[in-house]
């Protein structure tokens, strides 16, 4: 067993686990997008960033690809992590604003603006389809082409591949092109519709079951809490 510190807690992990797997085992949720349990890890979407190290020498790494080490110190929710993560979501959103998955992430993490020009490309190059095709469907019909800003996913030479059996695995797993967001105007906006809905947790307030990952992030329960405090104060005065 490997000993490490996860958000100031001493935890143990199996040899070969990643930080993400360890966090999941301990019930700590880290958002992911290009990660899928059935596929090899990729580390491309940069959503699962965590901060490792202590003191001045800390750095951000993708928890889905980083193996646990003895004595590793991990923080999953520092300001640095959240800032970077928010920027990643904003970047993704500006590429594929129609994706419900990404709009939901934006809502969840309080990304309320899109400062880059929307491109509506519908592919965020997370590579899930490429790995799905190769690893689960044994197809290897699609892959990445080019690099940098010219990168795209396609079949070799952009022609219909004989390897493709039209199984649809790539579409099934795609976080961007299948589930469409039906918010007000996702093309040019961040819909944030989910933020305006009433969360279920307010009725039965439970810190451990917060649907915004950590208690108090969305603010609804805090709003609920305040009158209670006043009641208590009032009661004290009386």
């Amino acid at each position: 067993m490997i000993n490490l510190k996860l958000n100031k807690l001493d935890v143990k992990a199996e040899q070969g686990w990643t930080i993400l797997e360890t966090a999941k085992y301990y019930g700590l949720e880290i958002p992911t997008l290009c990660y899928n349990e059935g596929l090899s890890t990729y580390g491309g979407c940069r959503l699962c960033l965590v901060e490792i190290g202590e003191g001045e020498n800390t750095k951000l790494v993708s928890s889905c690809t980083y193996p646990v080490e003895e004595g590793l110190v991990v923080h999953t929710d520092t300001k640095r992590v959240l800032n970077a993560r928010k920027m990643m979501i904003e970047l993704m959103l500006s590429v594929a604003p129609n994706s419900k998955t990404i709009q939901d992430l934006a809502s969840k993490f309080g990304v309320t603006q899109m400062r880059f020009e929307a491109r509506n490309e519908e592919c965020i190059l997370c590579g899930l389809c490429v790995r799905m095709c190769a690893e689960q469907m044994d197809g290897k019909a699609i892959g990445f082409q080019n690099r940098g800003h010219k990168r795209k996913i396609s079949t070799p030479f952009d022609v219909r591949s004989e390897e493709c059996r039209l199984c649809g695995g790539c579409m099934y797993i795609c976080p961007a092109c299948q589930l469409r967001c039906h918010g007000p105007d996702p093309d040019s906006d961040v819909c944030n519709a989910c933020l305006t809905m009433d969360p279920t947790c307010v009725d039965v307030y439970d810190e451990l079951q917060c649907w915004m990952y950590d208690a108090g992030r969305c603010g609804t329960c805090v709003r609920e809490e305040e009158p209670n405090k006043k009641d208590i104060q009032n009661a004290d005065k009386k």
Partner: peptide
């Protein structure tokens, strides 16, 4: 130069260099 030469795997580098260039 960098938006051309980024391998394009990480969103941060691929989209980041492109958007910074824009």
């Amino acid at each position: 130069f960098l938006r051309d030469e980024s391998c394009g795997k990480c969103l941060s580098c691929r989209e980041g260099t492109q958007r910074m260039w824009e």
